[in-house]
Amino acid sequence: MKKYYIRAIQEALFEEMERDNSVFLMGEDVRIGCFAATRGLCAKYGEQRVIDTPISELAVAGAAVGAAVTGSRPIVDLMFGQFLMLAYDQVSSQANAMRYMFGGQTKVPLVYLVQNGTGPCVGPHHSNSVHPLFMNIPLVKVVMPSCPADAKGLLKSAIRDDNPVVFFNHTSIGGMKGEVPDEEYLIPLGKGDIKKEGKDITLCAVGIMVNHCLKAAAQLEKEGISAEVVDLRTLKPWDKELVLESVKKTGRFLAVDESYKTCGAGAEWVATVAEEAFSDLKCPASRLSGEEIPIPFSPVLQQLAVPNKDTIAAKVREMVKK
């Protein structure tokens, strides 16, 4: 059945809260459900398990860590990736480290749920792509789905995972509709997916950029260029083998991501391809990234700040011609 992306997220939350009493949700306006994903949960599971918090990202993110190490499985909705930056200490010094630095005495099963990336023109503080900052934290899983079915299966896996997970939904993806299986299913973290097969070039992306890549690939197909689209789905740990296999087949690699070029997600992918698949490459591995500026408000400027299907297609033509 076709469903909205946001509905798929909501279903995952309902199903996992139903399945496991230790799962609880807290965050800013989770009862009312600002972006609809958490709506209805409080009516069903009560205020004890669906907790509206003060706007105190650091305390809430840290409380999740404390709850996770004492037998609960918190899901924290902090709305935007940039708001999670206010809690960066708790993610990068506590959530990720407690198991390792305490010699395996504990585990930290929690999910930070945020949205991330350019959306309906909400300006510099609500549009950034902060996922690379979380990829740079050891022992945290980072997820960003590209479609409703993946979102549901990945979120259910994230909630069941015994490690801390930062789960990014792209800001513009909530209204996307797609087929979602009726029966229960999980999608494993760390496994990518070939969203379209091709033989001339590998496009690698996550989140909404997968959809831009698919649109570019459809256009390129008409021009006789066959692009393969790899959706990593999980940014960390990421499915390197899938990418390297694809590059072996296509001989070309383009990373497409909204985050900045400097130490962005694409930097990691391109570096790995250059390190481990150099001899498979017919032309230099390359990347399209967000421009190195705060994301501007005006729609005209915003669309110039991040890759889109046209800039992707243009870059592919250039690479395939070489």
């Binding site: 650091l58 993110a61 840290g62 860590v65 190490v69 609960s72 200490d89």
Partner: peptide, 20 residues
């Protein structure tokens, strides 16, 4: 090792106690 870093963690432990 982070000054103040442990304070919210205790809040979370208390939250578990309340939930459980």
């Amino acid at each position: 090792g982070i000054v103040g870093g442990g304070i919210p963690i205790a809040v979370g432990a208390a939250l578990s106690s309340k939930l459980q």
